[in-house]
Write a protein that binds this DNA or RNA. Structure first.
Lengths: 205, 205
DNA sequence: GCCAAAATTAAACAAACGTTTGAATTAAAC
DNA sequence: GTTTAATTCAAACGTTTGTTTAATTTTGGC
């Protein structure tokens, strides 16, 4: 059955996201997926290959390439859409996002490079929007690389430091749905307000 | 000798930061610290207690409480100083910062709460500056919690996604010094420019 | 219904893990 | 110099780790 393979991926995503790669044993995964231990090696070859397969399969979920194709949108509209898209995707894939964050610290260079490659694709898209907005004199001169880092970093912060925000916002921990509901709209409007001021050519010094 | 204890902490900081808590064995630590394996249990009780000791010992390094005491500074000056202080501290403690990021995902609630507590202290300081600036009509109305998140997140991003920025900025990996030199001034001026626009009361809608 | 391929299983593997033990060594106190 | 406590050590402890094996069951084509 092919749905066992799928089940393994699904469970691995949750456990890797919650406990980290090293903090999750293949026995944990097998048990939660109701699958024999050996099936993981059988389908994926190894634990690390399982992580690679997971990242490769899910990578496309968080890619926003289509957006830049739409010529009718102004740079400001594109920025708003990027924020909506990006926040939604990450908020509905908290575990996967956690895995990608951890992937940066992986001891495996293959994983590190895979994660970097995925991030790079999104980075290039946002960068293109910023450059275009500058050319059209909507946006002022800013540090483009770090501006993208601010967007990614602000969003990441709400997942990395989730325990921290739970504490601030009085959200019971492990309640994914409550967290999403509370954070998503705030995050979107904060980022839009932030970038509107930061990028506006009227604020050029 | 008490310097063995210190050596263990020093090595643990580097290894936990590089490979994660689960990715570092007590044997790794003992070997790199030139210390017998049993000394770690002897001094700290357990591997987890070692991490707790590490966080507690280093926590004060990244606390910026003194700043708010200075009444002669305007809110704008305080913002600039916070940025300088925070960026410098994190950039010169990359490993420790990595550990704290990972700590958010620790399976130990004690660790999670310890990290949250440390972050909360800094959070409160920055929050105080923002509130004060709003009261004095320097700053406009913004989402304070997420504005702090933006500052922390932007800085964190440069350490979490370091492999990513290495790739963008063409820095050879594992060269901490080159990374610091390249990123620090850019990060400071980007954050100052960002917050100047974001907080300025002239941008009030 | 037979057969080869694919899927599934329990069991075993060696290696690595965190921790403990009890003896040996060093340091400090008197 | 003797005694007591603190330190250091090699060795072993029992688990848990990721992976493999070889036997068994299920599946799909003919």
């Amino acid at each position: 059955m092919a749905d066992k393979r799928e089940e393994i991926l699904l469970v691995a995503e949750r456990l890797f996201g919650d406990n980290g790669f090293d903090g999750t044993s293949v026995r944990d995964i097998a048990q939660h997926a109701n699958v024999n231990l050996a099936m993981i090696s059988y389908y994926f070859g190894s634990k690390e290959k399982l992580l690679e397969a997971l990242l490769e399969q899910r990578a496309n979920y968080t890619i926003l390439e289509a957006l830049n194709k739409d010529e009718s949108l102004t740079p400001w509209e594109k920025i708003d859409r990027v924020i909506d898209f990006y926040v939604d995707k990450i908020m509905s894939n908290l575990c996967l996002h956690n895995i990608m964050q951890q992937g940066n610290n992986s001891r495996s260079d293959e994983i590190k490079e895979l994660v970097t490659k995925i991030k790079l694709r999104n980075f290039e898209q946002i960068k293109k929007i910023l450059l275009d907005g500058q050319k059209k004199k909507f946006f002022r001169k800013v540090d483009i690389e770090l501006t993208v880092g601010t967007v990614m970093g602000t969003i990441s912060q709400t997942t990395i430091a989730r325990h921290f925000y739970n504490s601030i916002f009085n959200i019971e921990k492990n309640n994914d749905e409550a967290y999403r509901k509370k954070i998503t709209p705030r995050l979107k409007s904060h980022l839009k307000q932030l970038l509107r001021a930061h990028l506006d050519i009227k604020n050029e010094e």
